[in-house]
Design a protein around this nucleic acid. Structure first.
Lengths: 248, 248
DNA sequence: AAATAAATATGTATTATTTACACATTGATT
DNA sequence: AATCAATGTGTAAATAATACATATTTATTT
């Protein structure tokens, strides 16, 4: 096989002159993207799921995904899935990793690239209500509830998110533009599954110095309303710490 | 296209019964893995490169990579490339991310998954000396020296490594099994491109409590020999910090 | 209208960690 | 034996994390 290829494509200088022919001889696989779209509702982390439309996975839940098109970047494909399904643009999206087990798809070899997306469930209406598209609590999901290896993909993206929100300001994507510190803390507590001290949490975020006082206050709360803050990206960029520090 | 597919594969219950046919209709792409194999020599970080065998990239350097085989996991494919080229097994390897620009390969659409590998250049002999396989200093690499988008891949993997060695014990893979603290510090200084205080560096690593005194000393140094240590994985697993801490 | 409840908002003392240094020790070389 | 150039150890000051106390504000109850 290798020998034949060389005979076809290599010339006397041992270089491959016909790159197109080279690639044409490569084996190919179907490539998809799957989006783990997280939302935050009722102080719980949720993930956007749909009923699988495959008979073998009848009744099981599935992530939102699609085949990657011929001239499409993977990031583009994932973003397309996201906007088509949620009707939102300007959404946080990041690639997490590939899932490539040869038997992960019952119909043949399909390699998928998992993406993690964060969005505010208040900011949009779901575009499609078909196929039971809905926000599913992360805690009530077992492996057997889900099609393909989608539970493993969710687990991986959740772990990725847990680590990521401690080091980067992504959590804000799950909140309204203006939020109280209590909401922010609830978010962190729900995702990291820990209890945090109110006062130290506050101190920590203020010291990072990217929260901007909007002058507004919470409404419709049955206690003293908290101040509303917004995330200031410029301030973050200016003050963000450069050095992580060796520690493991 | 979507309509036809539905007509073929959907039955009255709106479920796809023939998964194989579904996948057979998916567009496919050629999928490769590319390994950014780092080594540490002369207190410099180096990367294992080869001359490109494509005429369009004549004279340019290329990463080690290969097409992913039909029933192969991506991790397997990357590990295969690694062992075939270096003759080493038990090598550190981790997936970094995909590169999927439609025109990244002159021969057509080829999506690649980049892997980062770390190995000790002393521990092995390069298997193949053909195609000028060699350790290239990371600093003396410009974009135009390299085939494909391989410079961008290296940059990404280098950044990934810089972050990663601050949070996980991977650096040891670049050193001999037994190493001095000075060697370890040189490694960190080279990769992170900073100067670190000898005494604080020492204190930090001892406090993490996974370095084991071998009782041996450096040899062939023209000054007081330093103690040689080895990394103890069990100790690391037992003591590793669970909580990162919110900070960005 | 006053008292109460439940949250927000702020402060402070303690502890742990990081940083910036000083000095002693060892082995090879002169 | 003196010198050099490293390794190896220690310590005080600055900074950051933690634990906890108290005041303030608004809605609700009496």
């Amino acid at each position: 096989m290798k020998k034949e290829l060389e005979a076809e494509t290599l010339s006397t200088d041992n270089l491959i002159h016909d790159a197109t022919q080279l690639v044409a001889n490569y084996p190919t696989v179907a490539l998809t993207v799957d989006c783990v779209i997280f939302g935050f509702e009722d102080n719980k982390l949720k993930v956007l799921l749909i009923r699988s439309d495959l008979e073998v996975f009848k009744g099981k839940w599935s992530l939102l995904g699609d085949v990657v098109r011929a001239t499409e970047e993977l990031d583009e494909a994932a973003y397309r899935v996201l906007t088509e399904r949620t009707g939102m643009s300007n959404v946080y999206l990041d690639q997490v990793r590939s899932f490539s087990s040869p038997d992960r798809h019952p119909g043949g070899r399909v390699v998928t690239i998992a993406y993690c997306s964060l969005l505010n469930t208040q900011h949009h209406q779901l575009q499609i209500t078909a196929n039971e598209l809905h926000w599913h609590p992360l805690t009530s999901l077992s492996d057997s509830d889900m099609a393909f290896d989608h539970k493993a993909i969710i687990d991986k993206c959740y772990k990725w998110l847990q680590k990521r929100i401690q080091e980067h300001p992504l959590g804000f994507n799950l909140l309204p533009e203006k939020f109280s510190l209590r909401e922010l803390q609830n978010l962190y507590e729900a995702i990291l599954n820990v209890e945090l001290d109110r006062r130290n949490f506050r101190k920590k975020f203020f010291s990072m110095d990217f929260l901007e006082d909007t002058g507004e206050f919470e409404e419709d709360v049955k206690h003293r309303p908290g101040k509303l803050y917004q995330f200031n990206f410029e301030k973050y960029e200016k003050n963000k710490r450069k050095w992580i520090g060796i520690d493991f």
